[in-house]
Design a protein around this nucleic acid. Structure first.
Length: 1117
RNA sequence: GCUCAAGUGGCGGAAUUGGUAGACGCGCUGGAUUCAAAAUCCAGUUUUUUCGGAAGUGCGGGUUCGAUUCCCGCCUUGAGUACCA
């Protein structure tokens, strides 16, 4: 009987689906084992051969573990929220849910045809409301938590409030915002609810913060660093600016140390751990405060109001006129730099609305003292915009758009009078810096601030103002990545201000420079040019002094960055000390004198959690009086609203701003139409959505109890499955997904929701499968200039057809040109006289790999009729040996390179089993490797040979006879090797082992059931379909997946003799078969007597004979 | 620049604790079978050679009786990351 993969594979896939063979139970006597793949994003292109690589490996492992008696959880799902679907929706208007659904259907079909043993009853999709309900729920848990550093874990906010009520915040040791006011219990209790909420927001694990983003006004959206090329957007080349935006952030920094410590107890690849360690970036040093020298003009208009006046203000804020509240409803949603406040005092005036960051005052006209107000506000540097009640009530949107344009294009303000100078010693500015080298503090000769540093505008002197402003404008255009990548250009500007060195009291210049990044540390550095190369280069470039504080070190050429063995000099009390002592002493002194303290800093930044996108999880958040409110968990999920357009709104709001049904009815507890926003109990909902990593940060827990509608997952299932035992996926997720997921897991652990604080015990990165692109070489003719008239040129060019030259016909561009010219002349496409006047240039074009066979031969007719090659219908091909050979190159597999290979074709031509074996056979799992189908015939013929072992010509036939010693040896050798290979994730070598076993058994003409039955089980994790078929032909009724793995018995491998390699000086020269019973002496005697040994020695006496019984003999001499 | 990984025939790769380098597969060559082809089967296939051998795992050293494997230095390629103060 012929091996027919198509029928067999279809039959067993159907069997597995119908019998739910791989459905895992949450209760079992067996030990549990959880094997997980990083779930795919279902893209429109479908699965390519790279995807299944990891899935096949994990499937082999899962199937193996089942044979080994484990209760295996092996689920699969889709990370189905994401940008591509949204982009596609923007282009075509199709709902992302629809295209996502279609893509998932394709993925599922492709996954099924490869025969994976997934438990599909547990499938999750991050875009499914039943799933993201729990993503929203986790968000609420984070919002309701703070990080208690004393307990070193997250706790419920209620415990924090309890402390505040009892003793204020001075004793609280929490991870929170940097600038926190201190308050007593009495003060806390006197705060309004809103003030209390504002304070709590500074402690919550998810919180609103102004974050710098890459804003692209042209696209109305925020861009990732890699979506920006040369300062403009990759799509459409629009300008990009750095801008502050109010966004949700996650206080992952609270977990920095624990994320670092946790790496030690998980079995993950070292490079992956390294990159996480690097990302967290722990550094030990000191926080030092430098005072800014001199007096400064204070232009802020802070006016202290009495308690009574404050109360009156509150009253006023709540009782707005109709026009006032209409306008406020529009203005209050503005966030970040354009955030408005209502009923605010500027000087002695109460203004209707003000945006402090943009210096804009919005007022209703017809106030009695309008002229006086205008003068005062203008002097204070404010633009004033006025509207009448009627204007607002008739067309509030028009009013808003006028306000927007006032924000974007502020009028230059002429200052009429001198500013009020309120100065002061007590109001002195301070600059905090973090340094890892406080021991070098006497080497500080200047300071550098990030251009975005908030102090820059305040301390810059009038003389330097123009310089500084120019510099800031110039750097605002550069992306963070640009600034970081460019190490060579040294740029900066002097603020004119000076800082006081805290120890020496000397004045040091304060500069700004874009090598200092606002987001890192404090956004300021104390520059020690003698000890840091960047500072050194900066000082050299701007001619700043470079004091040497190292004993006997020459710093005339470069900074001295080493620390070991160097003694500090010229540093007062630190002089003469070595690094370690100086470090300790400097910190000690700082702490004693009160301007610094020892600190551990982490590079890890709090993670921005808001995305201005449509296709993501909505936040369960509405805004009441500008303060975020969580929707009660029992009303979840908050389902993504329908929108007309998936683009940002015209006034720059995220796409959800287009939704008409997107307001929260706090009484009815449901999402209602925006029209109802006028009602007092209806509030606007959050317009941002969550990022891609939200849904993927906890999905591995959901699989444990995927259909639970009442809980995130039941406690019993979480306690049973605990964590992923084996997680397989690409290394590109090293710092994104894998760090955030660990963070959430630790948080959920702190809150007692999950039983373990690391979600994956072991992780393996599978290597990328690269594409092998095919190139055809086109000849492009050019007329050399001035040789012909335009008319004549055209005539010549028109005669020349498109010509392609086969790969091996040329070695250089010159040879290429000669071949083409000869061809053209021989075929009368070109007049021999004109040949010297034209030039032939070689152009390599990607040819679709499906048009090329494994011998690199192009299917010429198919190429001509390929939809991409309409231009080459009449092209001529210069052949070698009658065929056209293409050039090959290994590149990333990508649609644009026409080198994508889809597994479908291989499944139908060779079968899923062949595909599975072949992908494993390509090489080590972790290694990147090019895809090439040459070689698939090898595994395919292996399967045929395997099949044949069980057949006698046409009929299935196995014998009951006892197996011979040789047959048993083959079997047990294979059991041993395959078991070791799977345990070591060395799947490529076990495929070889199978081939060897089948070759040997074929040679032995073995058809014994006692050999072939266990063999089928051995093969089944790799090639499950053929194994099932053979298993059932052997008379078994149950799926082979229920069979026990064969047990290795060493006695079958015992040998009586060994073919010893006989080496001379370590080089093997010949082998000699000797009994294993021989003693060392007997071996030596036998070897030295051998005539080949005598010939090798050529009469010399061996100096030494090394004998390792059972291994080798080495003769020295 | 830094970190990590890798470098073995024409190609993918194997060699598990330092012990016969090139398993297994592809490709190629020759042969059998066939009217022919596909398929299948057999033999060969690192280089070099005076057919005895000799050399050989990126390069140069070292440790060792013995190194693809361990150590030092260098080169190349790939991946990640970035002025972390």
């Amino acid at each position: 009987m012929q091996y027919n993969h198509l029928d067999i594979e279809k039959k067993w896939q159907k069997f597995w689906a119908e019998n739910q063979t791989f459905k895992a139970s949450n209760e079992s006597e067996k030990p549990k084992y959880y094997v997980l793949d990083m779930f795919p994003y279902p893209s429109g292109a479908g699965l390519h051969v790279g995807h299944p690589l990891g899935y096949i490996a994990s499937d082999i492992y899962a199937r193996y573990k089942r044979h080994k008696g484990f209760n295996v959880l092996h689920p699969q799902g889709y990370d189905s929220f994401g940008l591509p679907a949204e982009q596609y929706a923007i282009q075509t208007g199709q709902h992302p849910a629809k295209t996502t659904e279609e893509n998932i259907t394709t993925y599922r079909r492709q996954l099924d045809q490869i025969g994976f043993s997934f438990d599909w009853s547990r499938e999750v999709r991050t875009s499914n409301p039943e799933y993201y309900k729990w993503t929203q729920w986790i968000f609420i848990q984070l919002f309701n938590s703070w990080y208690n550093k004393d307990a070193d874990k997250a706790e419920d906010v209620s415990t924090l409030v309890k402390i505040f009520k009892k003793s204020g915040n001075t004793s609280v040791n929490a991870v929170c915002d940097e600038e926190i006011i201190s308050f007593s219990a009495d003060e806390w209790n006197a705060f309004s609810t809103k003030e209390q909420e504002e304070i709590l927001l500074q402690y919550r694990l998810t919180f609103l913060s102004d974050t710098e983003v890459n804003w692209c006004p042209g696209l109305g959206t925020v861009l990732a660093n890699d979506e920006i090329v040369n300062g403009v957007s990759e799509r459409g080349s629009h300008p990009v600016v750095r801008k502050k935006m109010t966004q949700w952030s996650m206080r992952i920094s609270a977990y920095a140390q624990r994320l670092l410590d946790g790496l030690e107890k998980i079995d993950w690849p070292q490079p992956l751990k390294d990159s996480q360690t690097n990302w967290i970036g722990r550094s030990q040093g000191a926080m030092v405060t430098f005072k800014v020298a001199g007096d400064f003009e204070n232009t802020t208009s802070e006016v202290k109001l009495s308690y009574k006046e404050l109360e009156a203000l509150k009253e006023l804020r709540q009782n707005l006129s109709k026009a006032e509240s209409t306008l406020w409803d529009e203005l209050k949603n503005k966030k970040g730099a354009a955030k408005f406040r209502k009923k605010y005092t500027i000087g002695a005036f109460l203004v209707d609305y003000v945006c402090l960051a943009k210096n804009i005052i919005v007022e209703f006209s017809d106030k009695e003292d309008e002229a006086a107000r205008t003068t005062y506000f203008t002097n204070e540097g404010f633009n004033v915009v006025r509207f009448t009640n009627e204007e607002v009530l008739e067309n509030v949107l028009q009013v808003v758009s006028k306000i927007n344009s006032a924000i974007q294009f502020p009028k230059a303000i002429e200052k009429v009078t001198e500013k009020q100078v309120v100065s002061t010693a007590q109001n002195q500015y301070k600059i905090d810096v973090f340094t890892t080298r406080p021991d070098t503090i006497y080497g500080v000769s200047f300071m550098t601030l990030a251009p975005e540093h908030e102090l820059v505008s305040k301390i810059t002197t009038d003389a330097q103002k123009a310089d500084i402003e120019n510099y800031i404008t110039a750097t605002a255009k550069r992306s963070e990545r640009d600034r970081m990548a460019d190490v060579k250009t040294i740029s900066g500007a002097f603020t004119g201000a000076y800082a006081i060195h805290p120890f020496s009291g000397k004045k040091v210049q304060i500069w700004i420079g874009d090598y200092v990044l606002a987001n890192y540390g404090t956004g300021a550095v104390m520059a020690v040019p003698c000890g840091d190369q960047r500072d050194y280069d900066f000082a050299k470039h701007f001619d700043i002094s470079i004091p040497n504080i190292f004993e006997d070190i020459d710093i005339s050429q470069e900074a001295h960055t080493g620390k070991d063995g160097t003694k500090i000099a010229n540093s007062d009390f630190l002089s003469g000390l070595k690094y370690k002592k100086a470090l300790k002493l400097s910190i000690f002194e700082m702490e004693k004198r009160g301007f610094g303290y020892g600190k551990i800093n982490y590079r890890l930044r709090d993670a921005v959690f808001s995305r201005q996108r449509y296709w993501g999880e909505p936040f369960p958040v509405y805004y009441k009086d500008g303060m975020p409110q969580m929707i009660d968990a029992k009303h979840l999920p908050i389902v993504l609203p329908e929108v007309e357009k998936y683009l940002p709104t015209e006034d720059g709001k995220p796409p959800l701003g287009n939704a008409t049904e997107w307001a929260w009815d706090s009484r009815g507890k449901k999402v209602v139409s925006n029209e109802k926003l006028k009602n007092k109990t209806v509030y606007p909902l959050e317009l941002n959505t969550m990022p891609g990593w939200a849904g993927s940060s906890w999905y591995f827990n959901r699989y444990m109890d995927a259909t639970n509608s009442g809980e995130f997952a039941s406690k019993e299932s979480l306690d049973y499955w605990k964590e992923v035992d084996l997680y397989i996926g690409g290394s590109e997720h090293a710092t994104g997904h894998l760090l955030y997921a660990r963070f959430w897991q630790k948080f959920l652990f702190d809150k007692g929701i999950v039983p373990v604080d690391e979600f994956a015990k072991k992780l393996i990165n599978q290597g990328m499968i690269l594409g092998t692109s095919a190139f055809v070489y086109r000849a492009t003719p050019f007329i050399k200039s001035d040789c012909f008239t335009a008319h004549a040129s055209e005539e010549i060019m028109n005669k020349i057809p498109a010509v392609f030259v086969s790969k091996n016909l040329f070695n250089s561009d010159d040879e290429f040109e000669t071949i083409v010219k000869n061809h053209l002349i021989d075929n009368d496409f070109l007049n021999a006289n004109d040949a010297d006047s034209i030039m032939i240039v070689k152009t390599a074009l990607h040819a679709d790999v499906s048009l090329v066979n494994s011998s690199d031969e192009l299917a010429i007719e198919a190429f001509k009729s390929h939809s991409l090659n309409a231009d080459y219908k009449n092209a001529t091909f210069i052949l070698e040996d009658g065929v056209y050979k293409v050039g090959r190159e290994v590149e990333k597999m990508s649609k644009s390179k026409y080198n994508v290979v889809n597994p479908d074709a291989i499944c139908s031509a060779y079968g899923a089993d062949a595909l599975r074996l072949f992908e494993m056979f390509l090489g080590p799992l972790e290694q990147a490797k090019p895809w090439s189908t040459s070689g698939i015939s090898g595994v395919s013929s292996f399967l045929k040979k395997l099949w044949k072992l069980y057949f006698n010509e046409e009929t299935f036939k196995v014998s009951k006879e006892a197996a011979t010693k040789d047959e048993l040896k083959v079997l047990h050798k294979t059991i041993k090797k395959v078991e070791e290979d799977i345990e070591n994730f060395s799947f490529n070598t076990s495929v070889s082992t199978f081939m060897i076993a089948v070759n040997e058994l074929t040679a032995l003409k073995c058809n014994k059931r006692s050999i072939l039955e266990p063999l089928a089980i051995l093969v089944s994790p790799y090639a499950p379909h053929i194994a099932e078929e053979l298993w059932s032909l052997l008379g078994n009724k149950e799926s082979i997946s229920t069979a026990d793995f064969p047990i290795f018995d060493a006695k079958n491998l015992v040998e009586s003799a060994k073919n010893y390699p006989i080496s001379f000086n370590g080089k093997m020269r010949f082998t000699l078969e000797l009994s294993l019973d021989l003693s060392k002496e007997e071996i030596e005697k036998a070897v030295l007597e051998n005539e080949k040994t005598i010939a090798q020695l050529e009469g010399r006496t061996p100096k030494k004979v090394i004998i390792v019984p059972g291994k080798i003999v080495n003769i020295v001499g």
